[in-house]
């Protein structure tokens, strides 16, 4: 048997056995998502130079009027132009959503990576800290921060960022634990790579996709949470529009005029969907699927 093993000649190795690469393309869905995102961002950036009514101008049209040529998305209960409010609201909402989640990603992600990779006492300390953060009542935290630091958009971002640290840290930690046990990490250590390099070059790229998918949803949650804070008078004060406070205000008129809440909610929903599709498209384009034997 042993002799039989050696007798087999080493055949030519590479060309015919390697899988054929398929040309990769972006799907139509991806392009629709990209167009939507570009549109929303462009509208938010150029809101002040667009021919729109002021978002706070009451009786710009008849209250609760249906969409018309002059007011494409109709008017709210005070006769303010809905399109204008959504466009101006996008500025605050997108800023709050992305910045807060970015803060969460940087701090929570790093904490999760370190906890998951080093394990042991480091993990215990970081995980306990994250559990404390998770257990801390969100509203009390918000009230405390506003009370001490004052009411401003920056502080709202700070609160939501702080709140998104723990869930992101947990998620990143969980997937880091999985990858830290893989043999390529052992191999990297064996080759004398330093921990920082292993964390950011070997583990992070593997942990990133699932984290980003979650982060996109977290952006939506942060945008809605901003609305809730705004409703409680802890965020941007009405009448300044944000998607969140439009949904919150509109929901009180749900039985009379559902449009007021549904319209900003639909825009938010489409934006998050678009982010997801765009993310998926990019991911499959860069082909980072896991290998299989």
């Amino acid at each position: 048997m042993a002799e039989a093993l050696v007798a087999i000649e080493d055949p030519a190795v590479l060309p015919d056995t390697v899988g054929v690469r398929q040309p990769r393309r972006f799907t139509v869905l991806f392009w629709i998502a990209v167009v939507w995102l570009v549109l929303i961002i462009a509208l938010a950036v150029f809101a002040s130079v667009l021919p729109l009514d002021s978002p706070t101008q009451v009786f710009a049209c008849i209250p609760n009027s249906a969409p018309s040529w002059h007011h494409l998305l109709g008017c709210d209960e005070l006769g303010r132009d809905m399109l204008s409010r959504i466009v101006f609201g996008a500025r605050v909402s997108l800023e709050v959503g992305f910045t807060a989640v970015f803060i969460g990603l940087v701090f929570g992600g790093t904490a999760g990576l370190v906890a998951g990779y080093f394990g042991g006492k480091t993990d215990l300390i970081i995980s306990s800290a994250m559990n404390v953060l998770l257990a801390f009542p969100a509203l009390v935290l918000a009230l405390a921060v506003i009370a001490f630091l004052g009411q401003s958009l920056r502080n709202v971002i700070l609160i939501l960022g702080l709140l998104s640290i723990a869930p992101l840290a947990r998620l990143v930690r969980a997937s880091t634990v999985v990858y830290a046990q893989r043999e390529f990490v052992t191999a990297a250590r064996m080759m004398g790579f330093r921990s920082r390099r292993i964390l950011f070059r070997e583990v992070l790229p593997n942990v990133m996709p699932s984290t980003l998918s979650f982060a996109i949803v977290a952006v939506a949650v942060a945008i809605v949470a901003e609305g809730a804070l705004s409703f409680l008078g802890l965020s941007v004060r009405p009448p300044a529009p944000t998607w969140g406070n439009m949904i919150a205000e509109g929901s009180t008129y749900l039985s009379e005029n559902a449009w007021l809440a549904l319209c900003p909610a639909a825009v938010l929903c489409l934006t998050v969907l678009a982010l997801n599709f765009a993310g998926d498209g990019l991911r499959s384009f860069f082909d980072v699927k896991d290998s299989a034997l």
Binding site: E183, F184, T186, E202, N206, S291, A292
Partner: peptide, 15 residues
């Protein structure tokens, strides 16, 4: 240096 049993697990899929 060392080589491992699982050839797939011992290579970083992203690199």
């Amino acid at each position: 240096q060392m080589i491992f049993q699982d050839p797939v697990s011992s290579l970083n899929p992203r690199r």
